[in-house]
Simulated assay, not measured.
Amino acid sequence: MKQGLEAARSLARHLGPLWVVRYWDEGHGAAKFVCWGCDRLHWALDAHGTPPHHPLSITVVGEYKWPPLRAEGFGDFAADDPAAALGLSGELVADLYAWAADFDAGMELWLKDRDDEADDARREELDRRGRALTERVARELAPGRTVTYGGLA
């Protein structure tokens, strides 16, 4: 039973919210729904209500003093926020933090120097990195989630 339950949980996490995974609970003699977000078994398909408890449509945005990810109904959040349960690799999480920190540092430098030409070059590089990070986030997320690039604020 343990191996079957772990397989069902793994499948639910991989498929995401657009698919339904049911598990036959031999111990209780009943079929239950496997939640893709919390790994629990539920009697009802919509146990967490609507909207779902994790962000489905994510935007990567560079904005001064804000985390790099946001989602409608979920707000701004860090890549390793346990409530979002994205499951991104440590390397990608570190790269998103570094990108956000570099954006903040560039903004602070511009506020100090007001050098638009140097700022334009920094922003072009940050924009390029932001687009690449968006593609990486999209590749690492399970099916059922979308990722878009929102640019630099």
Rank of each mutant, 00 (worst) to 15 (best):
Lys2Ile: 09
Glu6Gly: 07
Ser10Ala: 06
Arg13Ala: 13
Arg13Lys: 06
Leu15Asp: 00
Val20Ala: 07
Arg22Thr: 01
Arg22Leu: 14
Glu26Phe: 11
Glu26Leu: 13
Val34Asn: 11
His42Asn: 09
Trp43Tyr: 01
Trp43Lys: 10
Pro55Asn: 00
Leu56Val: 10
Ser57Tyr: 12
Ile58His: 14
Thr59Phe: 02
Val60Ile: 08
Tyr64Met: 13
Tyr64Ala: 11
Lys65Ile: 06
Leu69His: 02
Ala71Tyr: 14
Glu72Tyr: 10
Phe74Asn: 11
Phe74Ser: 02
Gly75Ser: 05
Ala78Pro: 06
Ala78Lys: 13
Ala79Asp: 03
Ala79His: 11
Ala84Gln: 01
Ala85Arg: 15
Leu86Lys: 04
Gly87Asp: 05
Leu88Glu: 00
Leu88Val: 12
Glu91Cys: 04
Val93Lys: 06
Asp95Trp: 07
Asp102Arg: 15
Glu108Ala: 12
Leu109Trp: 08
Leu109Lys: 07
Asp113Asn: 03
Asp113Ile: 01
Arg114Glu: 01
Asp116Ser: 08
Glu117Phe: 13
Arg123Leu: 10
Glu124Asn: 09
Leu126Ala: 14
Ala132Asn: 07
Thr134Leu: 13
Glu135Val: 05
Val137Asn: 01
Pro143Tyr: 15
Thr146Leu: 07
Tyr149Gln: 08
Gly151Arg: 13
Leu152Cys: 15
